[in-house]
Computed example of a mutant assay.
Amino acid sequence: MSPRVALVSSERGLRLDPDLPIAAPALRQAGLAVDVVRWDDAAVDWADHDLAVVRSCWDYSWRLPEFLGWAASVPRLRNAVELLRWNTDKTHLRDLARAGLPVVPTVWDPTEAGQLPDAPEWVVKPSVSAGSRDTARWDDPAAALAHVAELTAAGRTAMLQPYLAGVDTAGETAMLFLGGRFSHAVRKGPLLRRGEGVRQDRNSRGDLRAVEPTAAQRELAEAALDAVPALVPGAAPPLYARIDLVPGPAGRPVLLELELAEPSLFLPQAPAGAVARLVRSVEDAIAA
């Protein structure tokens, strides 16, 4: 009998995730039985699968306790629940900074202008979020602090970062790792526009292209991934990771995001070989 794999999504992900129509046929062609399912589908027998792969569970950010409870109940889950617990709250950036990685400077729950980093603009977002929900770019300290206050009043942790102007020209570089090895890089165009405030309908998928990363980007991304085992001891190695880098003030890359929960892998933009690497990674995880 063929090994059975679940590609786990959400109601919205099943409709909109561009990776699933590429990944599922490739895994089936490799001889695996593949189910593409919602994480909250009570009819799914997770114990019937040799591996469950978290993919586009895009509603986790407003259902986090429920999502993590589900993840803890699923045998043979990748990425593992220990990684999901750590990574779904962006306070994990504190751990990465303490590990010596160059992370975009972040102030948590600031309450007064004197706490803001010296910058002409700032980004405010909740520490638990996906798809830039409840995120905005501000050039007025009072507006930035009002956004923070709105988030904290709702019981959320707010993070404030300087807006790095290099993003406007260079965008973000997403570094994709599969099976612990670098696979490909994709440039994501700038997403936050000056003066637009909070929006819930941003979509950068029209401004994506494969790029060749620099040596400095490779070095930082690999260092970030190498730091994970010490920060989340005992967790199974990540099946996939996406590390988002932006240019810092001196042009050197800095770490914006380390995504281990449900990152887009940008398979439609990926160069030849990336899908085969994903298949091998899944096969290796089943055999482990």
Rank of each mutant, 00 (worst) to 15 (best):
Y240I: 12
N203P: 04
A241M: 09
E259H: 04
A230K: 07
S183N: 13
P238C: 10
A224V: 15
G189Q: 02
E219H: 04
I243P: 15
L191W: 00
P249D: 14
G248V: 15
V186G: 14
A210H: 07
A216Y: 02
L191Q: 10
R199D: 04
R194Q: 09
P249E: 13
R242I: 13
P253A: 14
V246P: 03
A230R: 14
A227Q: 10
E196F: 03
V232S: 06
A221V: 14
G251N: 03
N203V: 01
Q217P: 11
R194H: 13
S183M: 07
A230T: 14
L225W: 10
A185K: 00
P238F: 12
L258Q: 01
V246L: 07
G234S: 05
H184W: 04
L220H: 02
V186D: 12
V198N: 01
L208W: 01
E219D: 15
Q200N: 01
P233F: 11
I243W: 02
G206E: 11
R202A: 00
V198Q: 06
L256R: 07
A215Y: 00
P237Q: 08
P237E: 12
L225N: 12
G251H: 05
A235R: 06
P237D: 07
V186H: 05
A215D: 12
R187T: 06
S204T: 06
A223D: 11
S204N: 10
Y240C: 14
T214H: 02
L191M: 08
G197N: 02
P229V: 03
G206V: 05
A223W: 01
G248D: 09
A235N: 14
D226G: 10
L220T: 15
L220K: 06
A221P: 10
A223H: 04
